[in-house]
Design a protein around this nucleic acid. Structure first.
Length: 245
DNA sequence: TCTCATGTTTAGGT
DNA sequence: GACCTAAACATGAG
């Protein structure tokens, strides 16, 4: 479920309920937060930042992170106890196996929207600056760093590196600036393609590298290794992806 | 049946 | 404090 584009789908689905101004009438679930604080709050905005789904109230924001296996239901329930359930007059939101947190005060004080790869405020120049602040970082780690590319996950990482022909173990400080810019641009572009494919239930069939065993360009076997500090699966072609080191 | 993974936080060690 | 590792969470695809 949970890379940035999937959270955008979730946000759009909740926005379609037109909850703005609606009051939380019922709260339940096994989340270890002070759920009573949410009761009688009126929704001010439905937002998202990277992999975070945000329901904003006056001076209080509910943050839901689906982690690896989280799920949600709108006006439906699963058989298991929800982590959090919010009941409105004509709608119900249920969140399962996720991380839930309450953020105090103005939500804008918690988030830099320009770091969200799906945001209208996404700023590629800032991303370049952030990358340059970490010259020793490996490309495979940079593309998972939520402080630089909020919303990018392991699928986006693998696809972007393959498309831009950058080896996952490339050192950020050794990658020519033009290549870095191309990588940053592709994160954004790929995320919106991801969004459309996911909506069409056609995401998997567009994967070029992720979970693949053979390079679609030169047809030699892909390498599959857990790379970088993040030790996440990387699928790559030694032949087609240039190692800057 | 079993393994593993679109993710992050936290606790503990050096 | 920096840095690392493992555990915890707990679902569902293959």
């Amino acid at each position: 479920m949970p890379e940035g584009p999937s959270i955008v789908i979730m946000r759009e689905a909740v926005e379609a309920l037109h909850l703005k101004g609606k009051e939380v009438l019922h709260v339940a679930g096994n989340a270890k937060i002070d759920k009573e604080r949410l009761r009688h709050q009126k929704v001010k905005a439905v937002r998202s930042w990277g992999k975070h789904f945000l329901l904003c109230f006056k001076d209080l924001t509910l943050r839901v992170h689906l982690l690896m296996f989280g799920s949600y239901r709108i006006n439906e329930r699963k058989d298991t106890t929800p982590r959090l359930s919010l009941g409105f007059k004509d709608a119900e939101l249920n969140f399962y196996t996720c991380s839930v947190k309450l953020l105090d005060g103005d939500v804008n004080d918690h988030y830099d929207w320009s770091r969200d790869i799906m945001s209208e405020q996404w700023d590629p120049a800032q991303a370049l600056k952030h990358l340059k602040e970490h010259p020793d970082m490996l490309a495979c780690d940079a593309l998972l760093d939520q402080d630089i590319f909020a919303g990018s996950g392991n699928i986006i990482k693998n696809e972007v590196l393959f498309i831009t022909r950058i080896h996952p173990q490339s050192v950020i400080g050794k990658i020519p600036q033009a290549r870095l810019k191309a990588m940053i641009k592709e994160v954004r572009d790929y995320s919106f393609k991801f969004l459309e494919w996911k909506k069409a239930l056609r995401l998997k069939q567009h994967w070029l590298a992720y979970t693949k065993t053979t390079c679609p360009r030169c047809h030699i076997p892909f390498k599959k290794q857990q790379l970088g500090k993040t030790k996440r699966r990387s699928f790559f072609c030694d032949n087609c992806q240039k190692l800057y080191a």
